[in-house]
């Protein structure tokens, strides 16, 4: 059983939903990422999602686009991100998931990428521009290294595609909450809650369901968890804190921890 599965099992016993926290590795500088991770974990993040920055992130809104640019400017390279992941993971029980786009993975080579990911104690990988139709070699390479492959589902995904995606995904299924890119939103749409209800029959008993995109406040977490999600993914809200406090690291870490704490509280029974 993978560490991600164990985390979900443990939380299920406690009737808690998981808080998955995303930050872009290397933003604003690679040397801060371990401290940022530490703050999020202290605040109660159950799974840490580290963004491996890509120059052209088409699924991301302005917040994460800008974070990617800052990280790349600070010299954040894929191997460096994996080293940082190893440094964090060696100290903490919290599983680490790498989120990136397909080209950096493809450029390194699928086998090399997953071998290195495994060596760096990475638990799972998310590639938002890789649909299951193009993922056969990728899946094989990941399976050989026992790294979880987290695929995405979206509001436009048909039931037919959904059952296929569920057979490819491992660790959890990443459900995109609405039509659009990543970024904070004022509220959770009713359509998102309906979507969760539609997807649940496909995931229940097979794989945990995590909902992301636009989730930034405790009340969002609450409504998504009440609709039946096993996990929430929060990204831009954390990245905004990092960006706002680039010149004041103590304040940055404090706010990250406090925000994680509040969000996690909303995921408790």
């Amino acid at each position: 059983m993978t560490a991600i599965n164990e985390t979900f099992q443990k939380l299920k016993k406690r009737k808690e939903a998981a808080l998955i926290g995303y930050v872009t590795a290397g933003d604003p500088d690679p040397k801060y990422t371990p401290q940022i991770a530490e703050a999020l974990i202290k605040g109660g993040v159950d799974i840490l999602e580290l963004g491996l920055p890509f120059s052209d992130p088409i699924a991301d809104g302005p917040t994460i686009q800008e974070a990617s640019i800052r990280a790349l400017k600070a010299g954040t390279k894929p191997k460096k991100v994996l080293e940082i992941a190893k440094q964090i993971r060696a100290k903490h029980e919290v599983p680490i998931v790498i989120m990136t786009y397909y080209n950096p993975v493809f450029r390194m080579g699928l086998d090399s990428f997953f071998r290195l990911a495994k060596d760096c104690l990475v638990d799972g990988v998310i590639v938002p521009d890789l649909p299951v139709e193009e993922a056969n070699d990728y899946k094989k390479a990941a399976d050989a290294c026992k790294v979880d492959t987290i695929f995405l589902a979206a509001p436009s995904t048909s039931n037919e595609r959904l059952s296929n995606i569920v057979t490819y995904t491992s660790g959890f299924l990443y459900l995109v909450s609405h039509f659009g890119v990543t970024g904070t939103k004022a509220s959770v749409e009713n359509a998102t809650l309906q979507l969760i209800k539609r997807v649940l029959p496909f995931t229940t008993g097979r794989v945990p369901l995590a909902v992301g995109f636009g989730i930034s406040k405790p009340e969002h977490v609450k409504s998504v968890v009440e609709a039946g999600a096993d996990a929430v993914i929060v990204g831009s809200a954390f990245v905004n804190i990092i960006n706002r406090n680039r010149e004041n690291r103590n304040q940055m870490l404090l706010e990250l921890e406090e925000t994680a704490l509040k969000l996690k509280k909303a995921a408790l029974p």
């Binding site: 699924a59 938002p128 649909p131 139709e133 193009e134 509001p155 436009s156 048909s158």
Partner: peptide
């Protein structure tokens, strides 16, 4: 070639 796009776009293409 292929279709390396976010899942949201798969139905559209």
């Amino acid at each position: 070639g292929g279709r390396f796009v976010p899942e949201v776009l798969m139905e559209a293409v």
